[in-house]
């Protein structure tokens, strides 16, 4: 397995940070910790061909890992409920030091592919730019225009077969 240089890791970190902040999210401000996760993401990218979550074990194929490719399907619900994602790479604006240090439960269903049920997902609308998104809660800030999440209005809902 190839080792990444400090410059490569730093470059990848800076580009992830810029992308993250542009879409209204935040990386963990503990730079040393975050650089470590970025290095692990580079390793997984090399190992599997996609940035598998560094805190989870692969299920053996991209198809089986789709929900745990970083950023994972569970990031936003975890940000809303625990102030951070499973790894603590992404953090909420109002995250407390305790939230960043403690553990959070694994939200991923044990057998994601085997559970089949209908799920109702609300649709939220940004009143400033009209951006629509289907998710349990509005984003912290609108990824398009930057309006704060509390301004979003509930629009409708869709039913998805999981």
């Amino acid at each position: 397995m190839r080792e990444f240089t400090t410059e490569e890791i730093r470059q990848s970190y800076e580009s992830l940070k810029a992308k993250t902040e542009k879409s209204g999210y935040l990386l963990n401000p503990d730079e040393e910790f975050t650089l470590g996760i970025v290095e692990s993401l580079l390793t997984n990218m090399e190992r599997y061909g996609y940035p598998l979550c560094p805190c989870r074990l692969t299920s053996g194929s991209r198809e089986a890992d789709l929900d745990i490719i970083c950023p994972c399907d569970y990031r936003d619900p975890d940000l809303a409920e625990y102030g951070r994602c499973y790894c603590a790479l992404y953090v909420a604006r109002d995250a407390t030091p305790e939230q960043l240090n403690g553990s959070i439960p694994e939200r991923r269903p044990k057998n994601p592919a085997q559970e089949s049920k209908e799920v109702t997902i609300p649709i939220w609308r940004c009143p400033v730019c009209g951006y629509l998104c289907a998710r349990q809660n509005p984003p912290e800030v609108c990824p398009i225009c930057g309006a704060s999440g509390d301004r979003f209005e509930r629009f409708n809902s869709i039913v998805k077969l999981e």
Partner: peptide
């Protein structure tokens, strides 16, 4: 542990 996991480190 996982070799990539910061909490394992």
């Amino acid at each position: 542990a996982l070799s990539t996991c910061p909490w394992c480190k």
